[in-house]
Write a protein that binds this DNA or RNA. Structure first.
Lengths: 250, 250
DNA sequence: GCAAAAGTGTTAACTGTACACCCATGA
DNA sequence: TCATGGGTGTACAGTTAACACTTTTGC
């Protein structure tokens, strides 16, 4: 018998939030998944998106921020709603049903989940901060083929939305450290979009939208010409995010 | 005392669906709203999006299709999820609270609503088919300034999504009758986008994506050169919807 | 004949895309 | 000196956007 989630009378059995937490390690797009305890047919179906039921005195934003805070220790993460999923048919896998019986006060309740994707700097994430009674790890997005419940559908939907959104707003900066090179930035776009981009065209385009400032720092100790570090120009970014911009795609 | 909604024990008090039902009368973009009974400070806040709580044995799709069927008598309407809204702070208006007390079994429950927009041919809609105990009418979208609860926010969000979507897929055909002129089609795009379009550029673009077939019929009894009627070419449309298309904006 | 919407091409500006070489550094 | 990724410009193709006149009909 595994231990039940903290059971409060005001935990609503019908509405949950789930998070697709994206990160970027300068090579690949990552997603933070939790590993469930128990017996599962394979390793993939053991993995799940972090999420939880919501409390009766919370709205959706409060709930998803609480889940993120509990898992990552982080506040004020970039968040965007993917949408609402499901109903009675969400929980079709027998192992998922068993697992719910082991941790839920109302294991058979129909749960509608509201999913969000969030973008975090992997370096800010401290696994130790987690108050979840689970282990969480970063996985390469393109290696994930299945997940618990309908979480794989949610992941794919979130990734598609991120791909679309990044063509309209430079939200990808939430994945980057304060200082970064143009090469790193390009690799982030390539990781999200899943295709390679032309270096010269990328640079022309990203410089044109005017949200980067060059710093006077350079890489060092690299076995090639050291790249210049850039910072993200917040003022220009904000006005851009508000108006959106028409033409921004790679 | 007004009559309560049909109260079934399996009506979930925490999750509802709401619909932004768009129509087009060849002049303006319309939205189907219900008029609530009772005392309200002004006519606008009396109006609301059609919607209802969901049953425990329904998933979200079943619920929204049920609501649409009950209200419009129509099946198989084009539907797209806008997203999930709210929590405790959705019901901030005192008159809304009073109204809920008059019709709900659990008037104070926190309700998360999942909103959808749908596109219907106004000519298919039969007000008489409605089994809702309310009156429903079409209103010009651009004249709506406020609605019950957070429904105005939902309406604006849905309209923005429709505007964006219509630049990627020709979903607007769900608003049109079987045969239509290019002028009518252009007015539909203008009504949705809220701006006027160049006639020649519009025609070139819409013909290029190859989803229209000319019929041999023309307008008659019109005080100007009669326009040719076109039909929507479903086969081409379907392949297009599946692949999406890159370049389609006016 | 007049009012009203249908129908029809061309041009200039801009945007996207493809492409190749030298540079600075560590090993 | 070699391997590695940084940094840079140009030319062609395709797309967008602006623009005006003739046609057909009802009245």
């Amino acid at each position: 018998m595994r231990r039940k989630e903290i059971i409060r009378p005001d935990l609503n059995p019908n509405v949950s939030v789930d998070c697709v937490i994206f990160g970027f390690d300068f090579q690949q797009l990552k997603v933070l998944l939790i590993e469930r305890e128990g017996d599962f047919p394979d390793e993939k179906s053991r993995l799940a998106l972090p999420g939880n039921l919501i409390y009766d005195d919370e709205n959706l934003n409060m709930a998803v921020n609480r889940v993120l805070k509990e898992l990552t220790g982080l506040d004020n993460i970039f968040l965007k709603q993917i949408g609402a999923f499901g109903g009675v048919d969400r929980i079709s896998k027998e192992t998922d049903k068993e697992w719910l019986r082991s941790i839920r006060a109302h294991p058979d309740a129909r749960v509608i989940t509201v999913a969000y994707y969030s973008l975090v700097r992997i370096s800010d994430y401290l696994p130790a901060a987690s108050s979840f009674a689970v282990t969480a790890n970063w996985y390469n997005v393109d290696e994930i083929k299945d997940l618990a419940f309908d979480h794989y559908t949610i992941l794919k939907t979130g990734l598609n939305q991120l791909r679309r959104e990044i063509s309209f707003r430079p939200i990808g900066f939430n994945l980057m450290p304060e200082k970064f090179t143009l090469g790193q930035l390009q690799r982030m776009y390539e990781a999200i979009l899943g295709r390679s981009l032309d270096k010269r065209n990328f640079r022309r385009k990203i410089m044109k939208i005017n949200i980067l400032s060059a710093t006077d720092e350079k890489e060092y100790d690299v076995p090639h010409k050291p790249a210049q570090y850039f910072k993200f120009n917040e003022a220009n970014y904000k006005s851009l995010v508000e108006t959106g911009f028409d033409n921004f795609s790679f």
